[in-house]
């Protein structure tokens, strides 16, 4: 008996959707627009925060030692620095390593290879590559390395300050969050109102039927069910349309952007840009909009 009712509720929902096809199409389209805006903002947000992380990882300090300096002296300085609570990681590259890496990097350039062979002494300095925990500690550490303590050992401190870029990206991110949240809120309200009106019209169209259903003893959920089914169809429809629209973005656009930001990463291998995660999220948003607006319409116009 229960499964029979369930089947009839779903069937009536489909019939309602079909009988008011134009209204249904309008409701689905408004919901689709909301979902597209939501998806674009979500991707922009994910992309920006991902870029910030990537750029943060590129910030470091390179300290070049004077050529011919004893390795034990360098190790002493390295140990000193390792005790600094601000410093996260120090990578040491010896003169020989630097030379080998340089040679390997230019293995295909016969001119460089030839010049290297001519050399009697390794001109490349040993380096320490330093990363701090916090972005704002970089200038301080760089200054210290340039200071009196290390003046006799370190010839040059190279610090690429990307903080301006990071700061700018942070601002963009905050803008996306505030502007995006407002935009999503506005369109959510529009979508809720349109679905609310559509369901209200369906209730009005089926007024007689609903009245008779009540009188012959249909349960409350048997009466409400078809309206919820109808709005569920809007949610499914708009999720499918939006998901299809985003396939080219995932296959064509996003890989190019991420390749630009970080060439080592494949977009489909990061959780951040998982397509199915986006689809699921869109469906949850659509479902929320549909259920909220339908319950509002039912509560207001469907007397049980």
């Amino acid at each position: 008996m229960e499964s029979m009712s369930f089947f009839r509720i779903i069937k009536t929902g489909f019939v309602n959707f079909w009988r008011n096809l134009w209204l249904s199409a309008a409701a689905t389209m408004v919901m689709t627009i909301t979902l597209v805006i939501f998806a674009v903002l979500f991707l922009m947000f994910a992309l920006t925060s991902y870029s910030i992380k990537t750029i943060q990882n590129t910030v470091d300090i390179s300290a070049y030692f004077k050529v011919g300096l004893d390795e034990s002296q360098i190790m002493k300085i390295k140990n000193d620095l390792q005790n600094d609570p601000r410093i996260k990681q120090i990578v040491y590259t010896s003169q020989q390593q630097a030379f080998d890496e340089f040679k390997a990097r230019h293995a295909n350039d016969p001119l460089i290879q030839e010049s290297l062979n001519e050399l009697t002494e390794n001109p490349l300095p040993a380096t320490l590559n330093i990363k701090t925990y916090k972005l704002e500690d970089y200038p301080g550490v760089a200054q210290e390395l340039e200071g009196a303590n290390y003046k006799d050992f370190i010839s040059k401190v190279n610090f690429e300050d990307n903080r301006v870029v990071i700061d700018r990206l942070g601002k963009i991110l905050r803008f996306i969050i505030t502007f995006g949240a407002a935009l999503v809120a506005v369109f959510s309200i529009i979508a809720i109102l349109v679905i609310f009106n559509t369901i209200t019209l369906t209730i009005y169209n089926r007024k007689e039927e609903v009245e008779i259903m009540r009188l012959v003893g249909a349960t409350n959920w048997y009466i409400r069910g078809p309206f919820l089914t109808e709005s569920l169809l809007y949610a499914i429809g708009s999720t499918v349309i939006t998901s299809l629209l985003f396939i080219p973005i995932f296959t064509q656009v996003l890989p190019k952007i991420t390749a630009y930001v970080n060439p080592q990463l494949n977009v489909f291998h990061t959780n951040l840009f998982n397509y199915w995660f986006l689809v699921l999220m869109l469906f949850v948003v659509a479902l929320l909009l549909a259920v909220i607006s339908t319950l509002l319409a039912i509560g207001k116009y469907l007397k049980i």
């Binding site: 008996m1 029979m4 009839r8 012959v216 048997y222």
Partner: peptide, 10 residues
């Protein structure tokens, strides 16, 4: 039949 349908009869 409608009266019976809404009450879940087969």
């Amino acid at each position: 039949a409608f009266a019976m349908e809404v009450c879940g009869h087969k």
